[in-house]
Write a protein that binds this DNA or RNA. Sequence first.
DNA 1: AAAAAAT
Length: 694
Amino acid sequence: MAEQLDMGRLSLNDSQHAPSNGFPDRAAYIPPHLRGRSQTPSGPPMDGPPPMMNGGGMNSNLNGSAWAGPGRGYGGPPPRMNNGGGGGNWANAPNFTPRGSDAPAPAPQPNGSWNYKASTTFDPNAYGKPGAGGSSIARGSGDGQWREGKHIPGPANPRLERELFGVPNDPSKQHTGINFEKYDDIPVEASGQGVPEPVTKFTNPPLDDHLLTNIDLAGYKVPTPVQKYSIPIVMGGRDLMACAQTGSGKTGGFLFPILSQAYQTGPSAPPAQASGGYGYGRQRKAYPTSLILAPTRELVSQIYDEARKFSYRSWVRPCVVYGGADIGSQLRQIERGCDLLVATPGRLVDLIERGRISLQNIKYLVLDEADRMLDMGFEPQIRRIVEGEDMPPTAGRQTLMFSATFPRDIQMLARDFLKEYIFLSVGRVGSTSENITQKVEYVEDVDKRSVLLDILHTHGAGLTLIFVETKRMADSLSDFLINQGFPATSIHGDRTQREREKALEMFRTGRCPILVATAVAARGLDIPNVTHVVNYDLPTDIDDYVHRIGRTGRAGNTGISTAFFNRGNRGVVRDLIDLLKEANQEVPSFLESIAREGSGFGGGRGGRGGGRGRGATATRDVRRYGGGGGGGGGGANGAGGFGGNWGSQPAGGYGGGFSGPPAGGYSGGSGYGGGYGGGSYGNPSGPGGQSSWW
DNA sequence: AAAAAAT
């Protein structure tokens, strides 16, 4: 009942955008007692292969046929069944602008008839046509067409072009990738079977011309190291596990090959059961072909923004969904076409439960910042999305995982979600390339404020990002700074999404060059021109520290990081020293002496520092170390953890200790088929086993 | 321990 009331309210609010196709803009209401049921009549998702257009060969999209239906291109009945008939134009609808309130509001719909026309005069061979007769409203991303097996880009739109790609000298739109030559210092290691040669340029082949046009518009000249590798890997149909951080260009690393493939092979037809015509009350369900999951709202917004750039004028329509924002407007966005979906897990599950999104057509699945998603407790949702709904199994899709670290739970996820993957280890952009000057000062808690003021007074222009540990501290410190006359703002999880976006925008644009932040801003956010990062409170996890200082010195630019250290932080002293040494930074003597006092953690975390680099962020391809053992009790982690939650899981999928490949497997005998059993990793807290060490 | 995330 509340649902219905809510829907009514949403429709009311949205009256200015109501489709004029004669149908009420009624969200598909699913009574609570029916929620969670599969909307598809085909039974439990993993029962059989999903509708594979290409015969199910795991690498068949190599041949460029994966997106196309049988025969050439899209030949099925009504195009865009999933978008309310003909696509819409509200890429910037109010309440949906994911970041920054500066995006121009859309003009009111000037002519209400196009939507209806689109559904009656459609060209059965066209996809993504924005309305018969052409709408004057350029939708931008996704307004191109797929017609008779060809990609027909939409018209240029100068206004949108400026919005997406920025105008010269607008620092808020400026891309960070300036010192490209610095990128070449970043070491990349690829392992696995049949690693393709990295590319060195953005060229056709392998990349599609339309994508190259957009890459050029965005001002990207040369692929970053991670892109050099990921482009041929993904375009070669391979799965990928990449240890890399934002700032290494990994967003482009997956968007470029995915979009390039999409432009060359066109959309896939909606599944047969979706072709039920335009009847009243039909299910309006979206069937995206690409799904990108990321942990935070800001991050999905950021990825979405990139996706909009690179899908400019193409047939691919990107959408973004996340919590904390009006779901009604997100639903309407999705209805108007959703080919590439960027989502936080919780909201996506919600939309799946509402029957508004089906994963049946997924060809590409990307898990970004996978370690962070697990840290945040998203594993059940992720497992459900990937294994418990109607997503094609590993063989029927391409899966790309990105993670800054590679602890054991991520290895499990990789084992379950990926097939014969190529492992990519990308060196740190920040710490190891020495372009961040890291200072550590001994500051007692009571002195932190005054020391901070000193820093802010002496540190001139540029953006300063101050990390604190708690939300309360973020508020009180930003209040304090404002009272002291500094242009400060804050971002943390208790602020509304609007406030968060506002704060971020003020910071990005330099109108508010001091941002006090909690961990919400620690990872992933790509803010250009941060010149100084202050760790007002040091994190307890050195990896968080690395992420935080990585907000400056981006893409080869130099930056400064200052950390306030006192005995309350002695838990990280050892790791901090290691890190400073590795990055050729000065190690203050007080750190060494405090380290000698004993860390309070019984000598610190074991197993660190062995081999190359630091153990904390082990990014080795563990498959090579996993040859021994097999079977055994290794399943303790998985068994029981989620066994009961998904009745649709294949029996034994997680029990039994990971002793074999998943059903429908890929046991190509590549050396890890049975190697993941318990004990295979040697040290139980193994490489990067830092989860729940406290 | 904190934070974030669907409502």
